[in-house]
Amino acid sequence: PDDLEKRARELLKRGKNPDEIREYLRNAGYDQSQAEEALKRAL
């Protein structure tokens, strides 16, 4: 898994919901489609 996916998994483990994770990834400078893909793979 790429770093983005790892980060998404990490956040899920900490109890973040998908919307929070999307926002976090966007704020971290990733584009929307990258964030969506990583989140899908992590779920």
Rank of each mutant, 00 (worst) to 15 (best):
P1S: 12
P1L: 14
P1A: 13
P1N: 11
P1V: 14
D2I: 12
D2G: 11
D2F: 10
D3T: 10
D3V: 09
D3Y: 12
L4H: 05
L4T: 05
L4C: 09
L4K: 03
E5T: 13
K6A: 13
K6L: 12
K6E: 12
K6R: 14
R7Y: 15
R7M: 15
A8H: 00
A8F: 06
A8P: 00
R9H: 08
R9D: 05
E10N: 05
L12S: 03
L12F: 05
K13Q: 14
K13M: 11
R14E: 15
R14W: 09
R14M: 15
G15W: 02
G15Y: 03
K16I: 13
K16L: 15
K16T: 08
K16R: 08
N17E: 09
N17D: 11
N17W: 05
N17H: 13
P18T: 06
P18R: 06
P18V: 12
P18Q: 07
D19V: 06
D19S: 10
D19H: 08
E20W: 12
E20H: 04
I21N: 00
R22A: 08
R22T: 08
R22N: 04
R22K: 10
E23R: 06
E23P: 00
E23Y: 03
Y24C: 09
Y24Q: 08
Y24N: 07
L25D: 00
L25A: 02
R26P: 00
R26Q: 11
R26W: 07
N27C: 08
N27R: 09
N27S: 10
N27L: 14
N27F: 07
N27E: 13
A28K: 08
G29N: 02
G29Y: 02
Y30C: 08
D31V: 05
Q32H: 12
Q32P: 14
Q32M: 14
Q32W: 13
S33M: 14
S33I: 14
S33T: 14
S33K: 13
S33Y: 13
Q34S: 10
A35V: 15
A35H: 01
E36P: 00
E36W: 03
E36H: 04
E37I: 09
E37Q: 10
E37Y: 03
A38R: 01
A38L: 08
L39F: 02
L39K: 00
L39Q: 01
L39M: 06
L39V: 11
L39P: 00
K40W: 08
R41I: 07
A42K: 01
A42Y: 04
A42F: 08
L43N: 04
L43K: 04
